[in-house]
Each structure stands twice: as structure tokens, then as C-alpha cells.
């Protein structure tokens, strides 16, 4: 099936550093095929956000080659959906939920009003995220979990083939988090989802790949990812229980992660 085999993201020998002589990412090579979803994990300062910014084309590799859909990332931005962390945004900004989601329909060289189709896509994205009733609400009066969902709806409004989520479970309460995992599983059937997370519990979910970023990048099949692998990435004992959640027990993949169970 050529559809499945199609490569979404391909990095070969990519290096990047913000300051001369200090590499944030060093000789990184991996690829992700269509239909597979991954979780980008690693310690703070390990280069997770840098990798994300490279994939978005906001930064360019200093060495090596990075392709998204076989092209330069900045050329395919219209096919990529991006969700930032909500606390990076000004909470007091005067904007409604619908206006935020419509931003996902912004096109190059486009000025004037959004058309009927844009409004329909925005409404559909809001319904997909289960927050259709929030449409007219002010963004600033929403809870953290609701804001996160609005920002995912905004990313979905553009009908992306690749969805990049930056720390989607940071600062949201466990109830909202559980809901979020369910949503993510539905989205994974429609598009390739890459999630940045410092939360190792996330890895246990129905995710295909674990992309460990700590200057070097190693990629693991999620089924084979264990506490020991995690320790290698973080260079110290990782407490998986601390990051884990009650819902872990319901996770179908539990049995393929025996070492995770031992860690508990």
C-alpha cells in the first residue's frame, strides 16, 4: 500500500545549535510514515521544542536535510496543523472561541472576510473537539483544558495531514487529560499526530513511536519502550509511576509493556 508507505517526515543527519559550537540537536536522522503517530519525549532543554520548530520550518537545519511531505517544511505549512501551549498566549486578549478557530483558516495572500466554507470548517472542528457550545464564548473565560481543545480545533480547522501538539497535557487537570487522550486516539485515525510531552505516562498510550530527544535522537517502537530505555534517554532513574495515571490500567497496550508494569 503506497498510501501507508508514504513518508511524512524525513530527517537525515540534521544538526542545529543556537550558539556556535553548542549543538542542541546533533546528527539526527529518522523518518515517520503516514498513519503512524509518535510522541516526542526527553528532558527539558534536550531539544524537543527545537525539533518541533525545525519541523514547522521556523528554524532551518545548519547541517543535514529535513523534509516534510518530501518538501521544505516552510513550503508545506498549509498541510501542517500546530497547537502551541496555551499559556504562551495572552489570557486577557479580547477574542472569542470562534475567532480563534477561524485563524486556522487563514491563507497566504488572503485578506478580507472569512467565507461560508471557513465558518463551516471552524464549526466542524469545534464539534469534533466536543466544544461546539463554547463557540461564542470569550477565550479568556475558559479553563485550561477548554483552551487547549480550542487550540487543537484551530489546528484541525485547516484540515491538516500532520498535526503537531506541543505539551498538550501540561497544566490541565487529570479529568480533562483523560478526555484529551480519547480525542487523540480518534484523531490518529485521520492524520499523523506528533505530540511533544515531558509526561512519560503519555508513552503508554496508543502511540506507535517514541521519539527520544536529548541532543541525539533515538526512535523506538512504543511497544518496545521500557523504563530502561527511558533511563538511557534521561541519564538518570526515571520515576514512571510519578508521571503515570490511574487510567494506565485500562490501557490496551499494558501487556506489551511488562517492564513498565515492573516499574510500578
Amino acid at each position: 500500500m503506497s498510501y501507508i508507505d508514504q513518508t511524512i517526515v524525513e530527517l537525515s543527519h540534521v544538526s542545529f545549535g543556537y550558539e556556535p559550537g553548542i549543538l542542541t540537536l546533533d546528527d539526527v536522522s529518522f523518518q515517520i510514515e503516514r498513519g503512524r503517530s509518535g510522541c516526542i519525549v526527553g528532558p527539558n532543554g534536550g531539544g524537543k521544542s527545537t525539533l518541533l520548530r525545525l519541523l514547522l520550518g521556523l528554524l532551518s537545519p545548519q547541517k543535514g536535510e529535513l523534509k516534510v511531505f518530501g518538501k521544505n517544511p516552510s513550503a508545506v505549512r498549509q498541510r501542517v496543523g500546530y497547537m502551541p501551549q496555551y499559556h504562551q498566549l495572552d489570557a486577557a486578549f479580547p477574542v472569542t472561541v470562534l475567532e480563534v478557530v477561524l485563524m486556522g483558516r487563514m491563507h497566504r495572500g488572503f485578506f478580507g472576510r472569512y467565507n461560508q466554507a471557513d465558518h463551516q470548517s471552524a464549526k466542524k472542528a469545534l464539534d469534533d473537539m466536543g466544544i461546539g457550545e463554547l463557540t461564542a464564548r470569550s477565550f479568556s473565560e475558559l479553563s485550561g483544558g477548554q483552551r487547549q481543545r480550542v487550540l487543537i480545533a484551530r489546528a484541525l480547522a485547516s484540515d491538516p495531514e500532520l498535526l503537531l501538539l506541543d505539551e498538550p497535557t501540561a497544566n490541565i487537570d487529570p479529568g480533562a487529560e483523560e478526555q484529551f487522550y480519547n480525542t487523540l486516539n480518534i484523531l490518529r485515525q485521520r492524520m499523523t499526530v506528533l505530540t511533544v510531552s515531558h509526561d512519560l505516562g503519555f508513552v503508554n498510550r496508543e502511540i506507535d513511536l517514541v521519539i527520544c530527544v536529548n541532543r541525539k535522537v533515538t526512535i523506538h517502537e512504543a511497544a518496545a519502550f521500557s523504563a530502561e530505555t527511558a533511563n538511557e534517554v534521561y541519564h538518570h532513574q526515571v520515576n514512571l509511576i510519578k508521571h503515570d495515571h490511574a487510567c494506565f490500567c485500562n490501557c490496551e497496550h499494558r501487556q506489551v509493556n511488562p517492564k513498565m508494569k515492573e516499574a510500578q
Binding site: L56, L58, R77, Q78, V80, Y82, P84, L89, D90, F93, V95, E99, V100, L102, M103, G104, M106, H107, R108, G109, F110, F111, G112, R113, Y114, R154, S158
Partner: peptide
């Protein structure tokens, strides 16, 4: 009036606006 949507997007979320081609 002409660029309201672009200006709104840029003011609210600079990076996202840049990604959407603003």
C-alpha cells in the same frame, strides 16, 4: 479594515500567524 483578520491573528499568536502565511 482590510487586514483585520491577519492583524488579529498576529496580535493573538505570532507564531501561528507566521505558520499560516501572515
Amino acid at each position: 479594515l482590510l487586514f483585520y483578520n491577519s492583524i488579529l491573528t498576529m496580535s493573538f499568536d505570532w507564531t501561528f500567524a507566521e505558520l499560516r502565511g501572515v
